[in-house]
Structure formats: structure tokens, C-alpha cells
Design a protein around this nucleic acid. Structure first.
Lengths: 149, 149
DNA sequence: GTTATTGCAAACATTTTGCACCAGC
DNA sequence: GCTGGTGCAAAATGTTTGCAATAAC
């Protein structure tokens, strides 16, 4: 599942800017890993990103992929998803949206916010909890898996 | 975080009934594990349940805890949560509710559905996806962690 | 008595870490 | 030359599995 090239360019520009602001070295590894993630909307695992980048950069190690993703997560460029299988999946940050998780194939699909209006949280009902984000996960069966049953 | 004893009894009754219906042996291990889970609303990990049951049943093994939880999940008695830390947490099934996950201490708190009305999903906007469940996760900082900063 | 379940330990998968080497300022 | 980043391999973590012994029905 690839992203349109203009969006990829936009994300890369943000990435470069953010690295400069934060004093993060713009290494070929980080660029390649972020580039691969920015161009892939399928919420890949670390392993999948590694396999995708490795051919063009054979020296790359999986450890670097993990370290890079964690670093970029800390700088708000990458989001780590926790889905129903227990391997982490990653997203290049791109604004509010939610996820549909297929219970058959474990793939994760984006759900635009428009399709699923954010519920209004009643702050009073939540006592002293400070809410910073709201994630909605829809669970079900994706079109592919409905056919393949 | 303990549950009121009447609710625990209700859950245990459901557990016994469901086991009988499905032909699952009612072993002391399963009873003890489910009992511990039914009396604990803190969404414990498998390890935490193991530590809680072990003193009263020293022969218990962690593998049995995992096997039991997976078995009961398959029979709709237990729910597995995927939160921000990457260890699975478990819930004795008890109807619709959502979760608040503290980004500081990783604890999970229940959010009653009343506090967070379920958003209406627009089926048309979701193409051929068959939605079976909707989980809302609120991320933020719990009252304890707000104090301890 | 049969079959399902347990305990144990080993295997497994994913992720993190220590350390020596390397690259960029 | 310093600083930070990478590659590698080992360790740590969480979870699953094979198998023989055991307990439930």
C-alpha cells in the first residue's frame, strides 16, 4: 500500500526540518528508514521495514531500525501502534485518523476521521484523568478476508 | 484494584456455566486463575496473575496461566488488551467499556461507556469492511502520575 | 480407563543492549 | 579528535510448545 509521492515529499521535508531543529544527525540509515515508512501506509513492522530497506543498503542492521523508530517516535515523527498481534507496527505521523484491524489477517487499515467522528469526552465523568489522545480501533473482517473464507 | 464480591460471584457462576456448556474441565488451576482475574479490575498481566495465584497453589506454572487465558479468551470469558507497553493485559469479560491508558505508568483504567458515548460508525464510509467491535483508548496521565511529577 | 490438562524446560519471536568500530562535524 | 551513530552479537523479555506425568470426567 503506497502513499502518493507528493505526500511522501511533504513528510520527508518535515523529517529533515525536525532533525535539524532537534540536532539529530541526518544519516543515510535514518533517511532510508523514514523514507520507507513515509511511503508505506500498511503500518509495517520493524522487520518489514528492514526487509524493504536492506536491498539498497546491505549493511543495515535490524537493531538500527529499532533504534531509529524509537528515536523518531520520541520526536513525534513516528507512531507505534499496538494491535491484536503482538508485534509493533509503525506509522509515519500524519494527523488524526483511526484504525481498522482485521481479526483474520491482522492487517491494519486507516480510517479517516471523517468516517468516525471523535466522540466528545465528558471531562467531568473522567475525574482527574488528563486525556491527551483518543484512539479508536475498529475490529472486524476486511474485504479480502471476507472473500477468502 | 478489587471488584466487589457480588460481581465476582456473578462472573464465577458464568465461568462454571460456560465451562459446563463447552465441555471444559473445571480444574483447580482454571478456577484459581479465573477467580484471580475476576476479582481484579487492574487489567493484570499473565505474570501478575501468576504471582497472585502461586502462593495458594505452588505447583502452578506460568505456562498454564498463558494456556488458560488463551483458552478462556477463545470461549469469550477473557479479553486480551493491547496497550502501550508490550505485555498483554487481561480482563474478565464484563460488557462494553473502554480504557484509559496512562502514558506514564502504563496502568489501564476502565472508562464506563456512559462517559464516552460510542461514535456512530458510518458503514458507507468504510467500504466493504465488516465492523464487529469498536474499542476506544484514551491516552493521557492518570491522577497519581499527575501528582508524582 | 480415556482423554484432557498440567508442569517443566526448551524453543521461539521480538526487542533491547554493550561494545568496538566508523562517520561526520 | 570528539561526538554520536552503526553493526554485530549477545542478552533480555514475553510467550508458546513438546512431552511425560497427572488428574478430571
Amino acid at each position: 500500500m503506497d502513499t502518493d509521492p507528493i505526500a511522501v515529499e511533504r513528510r520527508l521535508a518535515l523529517f529533515r526540518r525536525r532533525c535539524a531543529e532537534r540536532g539529530l544527525a541526518l544519516t543515510p540509515q535514518r533517511l532510508a528508514i523514514y523514507h520507507a515508512l513515509a511511503g508505506d501506509d500498511s503500518h509495517p513492522t520493524a522487520e518489514a521495514l528492514y526487509r524493504r530497506v536492506k536491498p539498497a543498503m546491505p549493511s543495515l542492521s535490524l537493531g538500527t531500525v529499532y533504534r531509529t523508530l524509537e528515536l523518531l517516535q520520541g520526536h513525534g515523527l513516528v507512531t507505534r501502534l499496538h494491535t491484536t498481534d503482538d508485534t509493533a507496527r509503525f506509522d509515519a505521523e500524519r494527523g488524526e485518523h483511526h484504525h481498522f484491524i482485521c481479526t483474520a489477517c491482522s492487517r491494519v487499515f486507516d480510517v479517516p476521521e471523517a468516517a468516525l467522528p471523535r466522540p466528545s469526552v465528558e471531562p467531568a465523568a473522567l475525574g482527574g484523568f488528563r486525556v491527551e489522545a483518543c484512539r479508536i480501533q475498529l475490529l472486524g473482517v476486511c474485504p479480502d478476508c471476507q472473500r477468502h473464507v
